[in-house]
Design a protein around this nucleic acid. Sequence first.
DNA 1: CGTATACGAGTTGTATACAATCATCCCATG
DNA 2: CATGGGATGATTGTATACAACTCGTATACG
Lengths: 256, 256
Amino acid sequence: MAVCPAAPDRPPRTVAESVYRALRRDIITLRHPPGTSLTEQELAGLYGSSRVPVREACRRLQQEGLLTAIPYKGYFVSQISLADIEDSFDLRELLECHAVARAVRRATPEEIAHLEELATTGYTYHDWASYGDFLERNREFHVCLAALGGNQRLVCVLDDLLGAMQRFFFLGLDLADFSTQMRHEHEGLIEALRRRSAEDALARIHEQIDSSRLRVRRALERGGIDLPLTTGGSQSRPFSSNQPPGPASPEDAEHG
Amino acid sequence: MAVCPAAPDRPPRTVAESVYRALRRDIITLRHPPGTSLTEQELAGLYGSSRVPVREACRRLQQEGLLTAIPYKGYFVSQISLADIEDSFDLRELLECHAVARAVRRATPEEIAHLEELATTGYTYHDWASYGDFLERNREFHVCLAALGGNQRLVCVLDDLLGAMQRFFFLGLDLADFSTQMRHEHEGLIEALRRRSAEDALARIHEQIDSSRLRVRRALERGGIDLPLTTGGSQSRPFSSNQPPGPASPEDAEHG
DNA sequence: CGTATACGAGTTGTATACAATCATCCCATG
DNA sequence: CATGGGATGATTGTATACAACTCGTATACG
């Protein structure tokens, strides 16, 4: 069942797990920006382990779409394309709205109360370190919300999707302090759930996702961070893996 | 971008890849029925390699939901639960209908022609060997169809989902000879695309998925294959990995 | 007799060494 | 000067050896 990667708090049980988390965080927080070239040996040095756990971590991240592997060549942090951002938000909307529509009828008061606990988190503006934690909490909120819809398979897919989208969200957070706005949005949604108003709940979730989409779009337009964006013309043929570095700047990947 | 695992024909470039394909096929064709216990060493012997490629294959299959790993204990072929089947079909319907609705407007005549080629395949009743190939072709058809909708991210998710559902489909195929019926369904859908009739296309895809769902349901009711089915009461809490063997029959896992 | 504990088999987790593969550059050659 | 071919370096792919962990069992003790 799609593994449901997020086992949030629990300390890592294996080296591979901790390498995975560290590397994932460094990709999401753009410490390794899109296009960065990475080798297993290099990563083994960075995260203090041998190549084997690194390899496992890279395979997971590759499956999640954050890394692109080139046989006998190395790994590259996947590019961010405008098309992929739009596709991701479209898909997210489809999944979450479907789930919320069902959650309105199914959610028990206890479940809604639990959801409310998750909704209270925020982040502190300009403190990049807090962004990562907040994004994880936010993901948990939306995943638990979707779980109330009753379709476990959908929940896992959404969880993976939100995981891959965290890099996008990260960009949006730094644009301004949306912490309280987002909390209010969450609370409004919970209220709609309590009143079992499908119409209202759907409008709220729709609004939330759209405002998130706008944040990301605006962040990209302002280009506060000079991302080597691929214009991402939608490939005409169904399959095609994320192109490697392309004309991206290899540059240095200083880390410590 | 979710890796898009199906690189259909191309010969395997690595040992890990061929182990992955072989093991996956053996799980889908129920040679390793749900609940079967597998160890890395055992699999290494079965498929003639060392533990390392086996490990990589198992991790992939775990991520796809076909295997469940228990640390220091081993791997188990994931159970099939009625709830998961219903969830999967619901999700499939959501994704494919969304894609088809958009495909109706976007698909070019060339793309539709390409789709028609993929629609011509069938299987020979009671020849289990042909089932696997057919299911792959059928998956490719539905994936390419969805690709015409223009959302690449959705396509990858659907691809993964159909991959995980192949075990279900396998059950349904053996119930009777649906080969020609399915081909007709495909052709009808293509016709609707050509006429750009959204209403008709949606009705067709809906009908196709529902008939597929019914096939699987019927196959399970008749219980032609004595699967250790978990009744799969929907777990009350969002996360919970697929339960291990439970009261399933460990039994022998004869293979050669 | 019940309980705690130490032991041992079995399994995955990790590290290291070596093989296979690919890209690049240099040099010989037409 | 252009071009083909082979050496060379870097990287992943694979195999093997060993460490860490878990669970069941037997055993000693109260």
